[in-house]
Amino acid sequence: MKKKRFLALMLVFTLLAATFTMGGCGTGNTTSQTNSESSYDGQLVFDHAMELQYAKLFSVEYYKGGYKLLTITNRDEDTAIVAKQSKILLVPEGMSTPSGLDADTLVLKTPVTNLLVSSTPVTSLMNASNCLSNISQVTYDKDSWYIDGVKKAFDDGKLTYVGDYKAPDYETIIAGAPTLAIYSTMLTGKPDVAEKLKELGINYILDQSTYEENPLGRVEWAKFYAALCNEEDAATTMYNTQAAYVDTLSKAEKTGKSVAVFYITSKGKLYVRNAGDYLTQMVNMAGGEYIFSDLNTDKTGTQEMNIESFYEKAKDADYVIYIWSLGGKPSTLSDFTGYNSVLSDMKAVKDGNVWCTTPDFFQIADTIGSMINDINLMLNADANTTELTYLKKLQ
């Protein structure tokens, strides 16, 4: 009898607990929140914009109900490839598409998955923002990658190589049916590929991070891609970590040491980074002084220069940063000076201050702050320091 009474009481408590759970505060708030969001279904009511520190070429606007509007300002306007602005409206699950949108606004459901990404820096930003699983196709094969997460994704069958961006395998792309393709601005040099993508109905955008004036602006593009994947918090955390390096260095005194940044091709052509390039800005932010500070101050990229003109300007540079992945690939200081005899007379060579970038230097954009810190460490290193995370001394 006592046992039955005990079981009856337990049943009552269980029912009361269930009633409280179903009608209590937790469920009530969830229902209220759902009703609040659904009240904005099909409407664009502005809430706030993403805060950006350095990036100028994209914006993310948040609307009530979970809608997001992503806008890219394309620096190289080429109507055959891409319009001046690219807009993507992200519609959350369970919500309908608002009416009255611009005809050229691309509408996608979030989170955006099954992406084709034809840019190693973009992939690195997404990898660092918990978005790698949203990528299914890339235009670089497994052997081209230095990012461990990407190589593992290949091994796990989660990434498919669709051929070089200049001549992709369209049948493989179609079979994968990507939701969106993300290309670097190099696509502007291959209008036939862009035209074919349009013909096949593959929506694409052009990453503009390389046009950002501040190196950290490149890193901040992680927030754009994170918005596609609903991973904004992860991207912000990563960005803040990289920005902290630069913030710390901005409070330190300049080293007063000059740096030459260049590479020499297998055919003997020498290329120097323009003064307006992000890499030369990284040198200055690290506390150094770029030796070619007056060379094309309004341009990024490189400038070909004959060896005599180069030597005349760079002979007294305190340090050399040689771009290993773009030119010849010296393993020793002897290999380096073997490119041209005049290099042996450079101050940096005589002082043993010739450093090479690591192979992954231009593949990853999510560690630019750390790279700047490495340049500062190089400028302050003693003779016994021969290797940093992204720089290695030639001996």
Rank of each mutant, 00 (worst) to 15 (best):
V354A: 01
K347A: 00
Y245F: 14
T210H: 05
Y263M: 01
L343D: 04
S184I: 07
L197Y: 04
E232C: 03
G157I: 02
S325I: 00
Y67K: 06
T210L: 12
G163W: 10
A381K: 07
K198V: 12
V162F: 05
I375D: 03
I364S: 05
G157Y: 06
D104S: 01
I364E: 10
I323V: 10
V283D: 08
I72N: 07
L132T: 01
N230V: 02
I307L: 04
E199N: 13
T255S: 12
F224P: 08
S341H: 11
M126R: 00
K87W: 03
V107L: 02
R5L: 12
I368L: 15
S325H: 03
M238P: 00
S325E: 11
R5E: 06
V122S: 04
V112T: 03
T297F: 08
D104F: 00
I81M: 15
I205V: 07
Q33P: 02
Y67D: 04
S136I: 08
T237R: 09
A348P: 03
G352T: 00
Q363R: 04
L90G: 00
G287A: 11
L132M: 08
D41E: 06
F310N: 10
L228N: 07
D76Q: 13
K393C: 10
A383K: 13
G287E: 00
L394W: 02
M95D: 09
L9C: 14
S184Q: 03
V246L: 15
M238D: 02
D148Y: 07
F224D: 07
Y170V: 09
T14Y: 12
E312M: 07
S331F: 00
W355C: 06
S59N: 02
T297A: 12
V138K: 09
D78H: 04
L106W: 07
Y239W: 11
